[in-house]
Amino acid sequence: MSALAAYWRSAVGKKMVMAVTGLILFAYVFVHMLGNLQLYAGDGGKAINEYAAFLHSTRAAPLLWAARIVLILCVVLHVWAAIVLTIQAWGARPVRYAKRVYREVGYAARTMVWSGPIIGAFIVYHILHLTCGSAGLPFQELRAYENVVNGFTLWYVSAFYIVAVLMLMLHFNHGLWSWFQTLGWSHPAQDRARRCVANLLTAIVVIGDLSFPIAVLAGLIKIPGGVA
């Protein structure tokens, strides 16, 4: 136990916690995106609504809650570690430079501290909108398809969503690449491979997620017979 405590106390340990929780959260977003691809089934939402019903059925409830607990735990640990580390980093340079030029630090890496909280805020809003139905937007219990379409038809809902996904893109891109680095998979000969894997995974999620509001706004996904 003391080894685990010492590990958590160390920055590298906390980075590892961020890496592992980050990967779980990424995996969730990935699966979530795959599930949402059912919006394209062309069946007026039958498939995705059945999928939603299944997830909310008593049979799947333990699984759902287990997943929710894991995810909440991951978010808590991820944010906690991030806050502690950020404070540590700020403390490491008490006097700022008068001039500063970055050669390598990319936009994604530099904005992790901002993309994180923005994504956090979005997640809260996203859950209120599509899980709890208490975001003040049209909502019907277990009618996922209709809720999505009705929401994204409003341009500002789509816009916020798109901004959040773009933030997610930045966050994932640096996060996934960092993941290799923190876990320790690294060799000069594989630098490019790591970069490619990070870019590819990010691209898949982002393209998938961005496609939903665009498809709704473009009328590719619509409710048969108009607004329900």
Partner: peptide
């Protein structure tokens, strides 16, 4: 009192 690594890569540069 050194900070932690955020994998920025600035050091390498």
């Amino acid at each position: 009192g050194f900070g932690y690594c955020s994998n920025y890569g600035e050091c390498e540069a």
